[in-house]
């Protein structure tokens, strides 16, 4: 995936989102820079409150009060979404970019049949007859692997199980063949066996529809199965981004290292789990220097003074970016 001929479908440049609250202006996202190549799956991983869902909202143009995009650009096919008008955003949303949410029941209309909801989504963007739209909707329900699609077409969402509802959400998100699909924790509310089915389905369909995917999750295991590249977020910043195999074989930000060590592994017998000291700082008490400095075991005086930039780890790995001034000392640990 490293050929230069591939063009970026999405470029986020220096994006800032602030929350305007009684406690002052709080930075939820600061200096986000991301590029997304056509056809890839970018995994975004981080703990609750790190800003991963806000990133999805910003791309969709759904940042609402008290939040506001205060700087930067989101270029989708070279068109800036931050400065785009409401009408233009409505054209793009659900059509060229669409999204799957965590809790399918709260994002589906409980009073409207599943088929009708998908039909409405198609009609909102395409000038075709209702009959045509509903036959397309039925086709879509079939392609997400729902048994007896004709029956489910007329069922209201509360009649369906969690896994089925999430399939309906996926059908709705993909019915207009979007070029970019954002999945915000799509399997967190599901059981493992159903999760495996849904993950498989997303991977299969994105091949079929040639969709680029941003896959947001807190689960490192899920991210490792789904992604081509992985971005690790902490307190509103991307702290590390690299190809999947690099991020797991040579994690270079102390936070990524800590996050991986904290997961109980199926193939190790350690008695005590590693944990990261402290907890994620609140947005109103962010440290002045590196955001991770309060919890980092490699923290030096310099870390406390200045926020580090996202820089290339090593000339040999131009795609592996890390936001840490001590990254070399961690890199040495890997090679030894």
């Amino acid at each position: 995936m490293s050929e230069n001929t591939e063009k970026n479908i999405l470029e986020i440049r220096d994006l800032n989102v602030d929350l305007f609250t009684e406690r002052g202006v709080l930075p939820v996202l600061s200096h986000i820079n991301l590029n997304l190549k056509e056809g890839e799956i970018l995994g975004v991983v981080g703990e609750s409150g790190c800003g991963k869902s806000m990133l999805a909202s910003a791309i969709m143009g759904l940042v609402d009060k008290p939040g506001k995009i205060t700087g930067g650009e989101i270029l989708f096919d070279s068109e800036d979404l931050v400065s785009a008008g409401k009408k233009r955003l409505q054209e793009i949303r659900g059509n060229a970019i669409s999204m799957i949410f965590q809790e399918p029941m709260t994002s589906l209309n409980p009073l409207m049949s599943c088929g009708k909801q998908i039909t409405e989504a198609i009609l909102a963007h395409k000038k075709i007859s209702r009959k045509e739209a509903s036959s397309q909707a039925l086709e879509m329900i079939r392609s997400v692997g729902i048994p007896m699609p004709e029956k489910i077409f007329d069922a209201i969402p509360s009649r369906l199980s969690g896994g089925m509802r999430q399939r309906i959400m996926i059908a709705m998100a993909l019915c207009l063949k979007p070029r970019l699909l954002i999945c915000d924790e799509p399997t967190t509310a599901l059981d493992v066996t159903v999760q495996a089915q849904i993950l498989y389905l997303i991977k299969k369909l994105r091949k079929e529809f040639k969709t680029t995917v941003i896959f947001i999750s807190h689960d490192m295991g899920v991210i490792s199965q789904m992604s081509d590249r992985v971005a690790v977020m902490y307190a509103g910043q991307v702290v590390e981004i690299a190809d999947k195999k690099d991020i797991f074989s040579m994690p270079s930000h102390p936070y990524t290292v800590g996050l991986e060590a904290a997961i109980p592994k199926m193939d190790s017998d350690t008695d005590k789990l590693e944990s990261i000291p402290g907890s994620v700082p609140m947005l109103y008490e962010l440290p002045e220097g590196c955001l991770f400095s309060t919890r980092c075991s490699h923290c030096t005086d310099q870390c406390k003074l200045k926020r580090p930039e996202l820089t290339i780890l090593d000339e040999a790995y131009p795609d592996h970016l890390v936001r840490c001034i001590n990254k070399d000392c961690l890199a040495v640990q890997h090679s030894s």
Partner: peptide, 16 residues
């Protein structure tokens, strides 16, 4: 079904 780091997704739907 447990996703874990380094484990690849099954190629074939039959395994699910």
């Amino acid at each position: 079904s447990i996703p874990s780091i380094g484990k690849e997704m099954p190629e074939d739907e039959q395994q699910l």
